[in-house]
Write a protein that binds this DNA or RNA. Sequence first.
RNA 1: GGAGAAAUGGCCGAGUGGCUGAAGGCGCUCGCCUGCUAAGCGAGUAUGGGGAUAAAACUCCAUCGAGAGUUCGAAUCUCUCUUUCUCCGCCA
Length: 424
Amino acid sequence: MLEIKYIRENIDTVKKALENRGGKANFDTFIDLEKKRRALLKEIEALRHSRNTVSEEIAATKRAGGNAEKEIIEMREVSDRIKELDKALNETEEGINSFMISLPNMPHSDVPPGLTEEDNRLEKQVGTPRTFDFDIKPHWDIGENLGILDFARAAKITGARFPLYLGQGARLERALINFMLDIHTMEHGFTEALPPFIVNRKSLTGTGQLPKFEEDLFKLEGWDYFMIPTSEVPLTNIHSDEILAEKDLPIRFTAYTPCFRSEAGSHGRDTRGLIRQHQFNKVEMVKYTTPETSFDELESMLASAETILKRLGLPYQVITLCAGDMGFSATKTYDIEVWMPGQDKYREISSCSNCGDFQARRANIKFRREGAKKPEFAHTLNGSGLAVGRCFAAILENYQQADGSVTIPEALRPYMGGAEVIKK
RNA sequence: GGAGAAAUGGCCGAGUGGCUGAAGGCGCUCGCCUGCUAAGCGAGUAUGGGGAUAAAACUCCAUCGAGAGUUCGAAUCUCUCUUUCUCCGCCA
């Protein structure tokens, strides 16, 4: 959410920023509502003031044993009038709020303009894709041949786009989770969390998934609860409605959770394999920072995610998303794309975003500077560290052997009971 | 699931219709005092919004879990919801 005063005073900047990311909104209605709100507020406050003062007089009169009938009748009318105006004010504020809450964040000045992924900016490529002297396979074939992935049975249990890992496959997924969590907690200063996998509407509104993207979520029948699409939601809401101390910042959380997405509108895309599932595992990083450190923290979050890929020996590239390709809440986003030889391209495996104070305003996350009276909005960041299923897929494809086996990256072997290879 | 109790400021806790944005205590901040990691004394210490201002000072409105109601007036009375606690039942 943007600041109401800021929108009012910088309407053209806001409009332009919105257009840059391909959105539009009716600002004229908003301006009218805003004017109306302040007019109503002024009138209501004046009436309340007179009610407060006269009520005190009535109390004094009564205490002295006098008669205040005239004032009481007068105030009865005032109260009725306040009630009417209050109703109008509530409606106005609802209009303003639903407008404000539907506006995406403004892109940072460093973000390249553009509406499609064509306009994303390549920052760097790390590692050299391996050359194969045999016919390489996509990860779903490798996994199914090894008996460690079984999409057919998963479809039987639930339906399409659900994974079933078996044997060394299940173990590899678990190993990756532990490997990532260990690095982030022991080397990068993150506190591990294990949050709820189901969250309420307020939390999803705080991080920006709601109200606009409800169709992307799995909702629980009979409850106003949703399966989390990412642990960004519970982690960023840990400190919602709180005022943090400056000395406690930055606060860094990491968590493993499964994530659940309806993938509405992506029919026919990535229909095979682990790339696009309704349920997938992810290790997430979330930070709460001061405004002046958030972009540095974004760099270090990116580095934290890169560490995982480097240790696993997976080639990748980093891109800065253009304005139109960023998520709703982000002001700047880096995507990390891992090399997938089976598909002969780089695929997203992590997305690290600085949300500035956008989520903090929605979720009411503040901090107080040492000695300062007024609290300020904190900045929040989130990033994958990494998407576990996609990492699993990348390992299968990058470490496949001619005989159909998969070499386990060295860094992962302690987490695999010392195993060096997955074979039939 | 059944029965009961509760929700007040950073924390503890008083307050059952007006003089209570809220006693008292603790904590914290600043100052004073004190020859010693203490005690004492004084002052300050919620959040949001409107107005005012160069910015402040200042001023007004709202907030005692949330929402609705009664009343001239609600922390206090009524209703609904949420959460917590106790007992019973069930359960990984």
